[in-house]
Design a protein around this nucleic acid. Structure first.
Length: 283
DNA sequence: ATAGGCACCTGGTGGC
DNA sequence: TGCCACCAGGTGCCTA
């Protein structure tokens, strides 16, 4: 699943295929994912042109020339499988339908894009572009971590009275958009903050310090995904090469990477989800 | 408003 | 090979 960097990588890979082209045909092989698909989804998409493919938090938003926007969320296992696209001189062959290809877009160019989602925690919706503010899934989402509205004063204020562990609060999409279980762990490690500390107990200095770290971790992960875009491997939404750079996530029992630290990475469970951290560096 | 737990699904892995 | 327990990148909804 994709957290913000993976979704952004998918967006960057898919934009050249979607933008400016039309949906020549849309196959819908299931009634919905997390929720039923909107009424007559295939008909409403067929023949529409994609003007722009945007990202908001972990949502992909395709603005159509008909005044509607197609919203897509990849959930935990959603992928966008692109085939038949022209990449420079190369014309990739069109892939056959695979298991869990629930929605398949056939573009005017001949490219094929399959929304594949084994666990079906993903989502799709169509809403009037002009009424984005009323879209329930988007309403209430916090600032984009790479945007200007996300700064130290904001974050310090947003977490000041929160009586939950800082890990849980950073996962709250109302506080900041796009962080997930992996990148929260990486952020708190770099910040030297123990994930179980109550958010309200952080000093404002600590809160402010988190902002550039969040930006760096996400930017580096996007960069790692983007660097592999040209070989077309990262476009489907899998974890990019950045996973080889995880310092704590998935490293239970392994030595802490901090020079001179002889701590071992621990795994605890918070709200039913794994948290990885160094008990020596993070206090 | 906020916090905690459950639910929704399939697939992969490791132990016996 | 089979069976089972456990784990997985998300997040809406329900209950206090």
């Amino acid at each position: 699943m994709p957290e913000l960097p993976e979704v952004e990588t998918v967006r960057r890979g898919l934009a050249p295929v979607f933008e400016g082209d039309i949906f020549r045909e849309v196959e819908v092989h299931i009634g919905g994912l997390r929720w039923p698909f909107p009424e007559r989804m295939a008909e409403r998409l067929t023949g529409a042109r994609v003007d722009r493919l945007r990202r908001r938090s972990k949502y992909l938003l395709a603005d159509l020339d008909r005044g509607e926007t197609l919203l897509m969320h990849l959930g935990m296992t959603g992928r966008m499988l692109i085939s038949g696209a022209k990449i420079g001189e190369f014309h990739h062959p069109i892939a056959a339908r695979e298991k869990h290809d629930h929605v398949v877009f056939h573009m005017g160019s001949g490219a094929r894009v399959a929304f594949n989602d084994a666990r079906r925690f993903g989502a799709m919706d169509l809403f009037e572009t002009a009424r984005e503010a009323e879209q329930k899934l988007l309403a209430g989402i916090g600032p984009e971590p790479l945007g200007n509205a996300f700064d130290g004063a904001y974050l310090a204020g947003a977490i000041a009275r929160r009586k939950s562990p800082i890990k849980n609060v950073l996962l709250d999409q109302k506080v900041v958009a796009g962080l997930g279980n992996i990148y929260v762990a990486e952020v708190l490690f770099r910040a030297g903050i123990h994930p179980a500390r109550l958010a309200r107990d952080l000093t404002s200095d600590e809160a402010e310090k988190l902002v550039p770290i969040i930006r760096d971790v996400l930017s580096e992960a996007i960069e790692a995904g983007g660097s592999s875009l040209r070989d077309h491997r990262q476009v489907d939404g899998d974890l990019g090469y950045f996973q080889h750079s995880f310092r704590v996530y998935g490293r239970e029992g392994a030595p802490c990477v901090t020079p001179g630290c002889n701590g071992k990475i621990e795994r605890i469970t918070q709200s039913g989800r794994s948290t990885f951290f160094c008990p020596v560096c993070q206090t």
